[in-house]
Computed example of a mutant assay.
Amino acid sequence: MPSFASPVLQFDESQLEHINNKLNAMKPEQILDWASVTFSGLFQETAFGPSGNVITDILHAQNNSVPVIFVDTLHHFDETLDLAKRSQQKYGFKLHVYKPLGCETREDFVAKHGDQLWKTDDVVYDYSVKVEPARRAYEELQVQAVITGRRRSQKGDRAALRIVEIEKGTGLVKINPLASWSFQQVWSYLRANEVPYNALLDQGYKSVGDYHSTRPVNAGEDERAGRWEGSEKTECGLHKDYFAMRAAFLARKKKQDAAVSPSSSAQQVAPVA
């Protein structure tokens, strides 16, 4: 289990509320300026979705060289991986790519975890492809704060999103400069500023995740309706309670191990982080 530093910003809930009230009146550019002078260990964490692309463009316009963390689940669309390359070529940011532990390719992942793990055990899948690689990145890169593209208009768990959050138990600060924006504001910015975006957006997608659990959005549906259809999930794990995710992962792993006979080959899972 990784060691977590004390919170970088130490203040009570009323002080955090005061900061958020001040930042709510600011434009994304001003929020990003505030973040850049407040945190030395500041990173942008993105899967190159529309909001993340807007933030990357704003940071570039400010000559703000914030490094980028990309968690490659090994199950992204080819269009997403192509966008990651195009974005880095245009903006020149330092890109840190983290993949599931011990896996370099999708074939490696299947060999280690079996085929279609997202169907057989979505808890182990989410932990292995998102939570563990992200935590490894935070520890190795000494991350104090991450900039995310989450917005209230995406609804679900994000409806009450604040601009600044401090993750309980870890001290990780999450900054959401586009929290108050709508999808239309994001889309208008992308087009007006000729920002690289995922080609899947032109095919009806609005929120793009792994290829096996993402579909285009129909007229009148919420922006993230195309994610995890038929499931109650609204988040993949990156923005859930880390310790709850870890506990669920451990419980599933214990159950798997108990179900495997000595003569069988146990399905491997990533070591706990």
Rank of each mutant, 00 (worst) to 15 (best):
Phe43Asp: 07
Ala251Gln: 13
Thr80Ser: 15
Ser265Tyr: 03
Phe48His: 01
Arg150Phe: 10
Glu132Val: 08
Gln267Gly: 10
Ile147Arg: 11
Leu42Gln: 08
Gln44Ser: 13
Ala35Cys: 11
Gln142Arg: 09
Val110Lys: 07
Ala258Asp: 02
Met245Ala: 07
Ala137Tyr: 06
Ala145Gly: 10
Gln184Trp: 14
Met245Gly: 02
Lys85Phe: 11
Thr170Asp: 01
Ala84Leu: 13
Asp257Trp: 07
Gln88Ile: 11
His18Leu: 15
Pro196Met: 11
Asp108Ser: 05
Ala225Thr: 06
Glu79Trp: 02
Leu101Arg: 10
Val173Leu: 07
Ser6Met: 02
Lys254Asp: 08
Val269Gly: 06
Ala35Phe: 12
Ile55Trp: 14
Ala137Pro: 08
Glu235Gly: 01
Lys94Thr: 15
Trp228Asp: 02
Val129Arg: 05
Asp257Ala: 14
Leu117Gln: 14
Glu165Asn: 13
Val123Ala: 08
Ala270Arg: 06
Glu139Lys: 14
Val272Thr: 05
Asp57Cys: 07
Asp108Arg: 00
Leu172Gly: 02
Asn198Val: 09
Asn53Gly: 11
Glu107Met: 05
Gly149Asp: 04
Pro133Glu: 02
Gly52Cys: 04
Ala111Thr: 04
Leu190Gly: 09
Trp34Gln: 11
Ile69Val: 08
Gln116Ile: 03
Arg152Met: 12
Asp72Cys: 12
Ile31His: 14
Leu83Asn: 13
Asn218Gly: 13
Leu81Pro: 03
Gly49Thr: 06
Gly156Ala: 14
Phe48Met: 02
Ala270Asn: 11
Arg191Ser: 12
Glu79Phe: 04
Gly156Ser: 15
Glu167Arg: 14
Arg150Met: 12
Val260Ser: 12
Arg86Phe: 10
Asn176Gly: 09
Arg150Glu: 14
Val269Ala: 07
Ala199Tyr: 00
Ser40Ile: 08
Ser231Trp: 05
Pro100Tyr: 03
Asn63Ser: 12
Asp257Cys: 05
Gln89Asp: 13
Tyr127Asp: 05
Pro50Gly: 06
Lys253Tyr: 00
Met1Phe: 01
Asn20Asp: 07
Ala145Met: 04
Phe93Tyr: 15
Asn24Cys: 15
Ser261Asp: 12
Gln154Pro: 04
Ser40Lys: 13
Arg224Gln: 01
Glu17Asn: 13
Ala84Thr: 07
Pro196Phe: 13
Lys130Ser: 03
Ala160Lys: 14
Ala61Met: 08
Ser51Ile: 04
Ala25Gln: 15
Gln116Pro: 04
Asn193Thr: 00
His96Lys: 11
Gln30Val: 09
Asn24Leu: 15
Gln256Met: 15
Phe43Tyr: 15
Asn218Val: 01
Thr148Asp: 02
Gly92Leu: 11
Arg215Phe: 09
Asp78Leu: 07
Arg224Asn: 06
Ala225Met: 07
His212Asp: 08
Val110Thr: 11
Lys255Cys: 10
His75Arg: 08
Ile58Val: 12
Gly226Cys: 12
Phe183Ala: 13
Leu172Arg: 00
Thr148Ile: 02
Val68Ala: 07
Glu235Pro: 01
Leu95Asp: 04
Ser265His: 03
Ala251Ile: 03
Thr46Ile: 04
Gly156Cys: 09
Arg252Thr: 03
Gly209Ser: 02
Gln116Arg: 14
Asp222Gly: 10
Lys254Met: 01
Asp12Lys: 09
Arg191Tyr: 09
Ser65Thr: 15
Ser207Asp: 07
Ala219Thr: 09
Ala159Cys: 10
Arg224Met: 00
Ser231Cys: 01
Ala192Ser: 14
Asp157Lys: 15
Glu235Asp: 04
Ala159Trp: 10
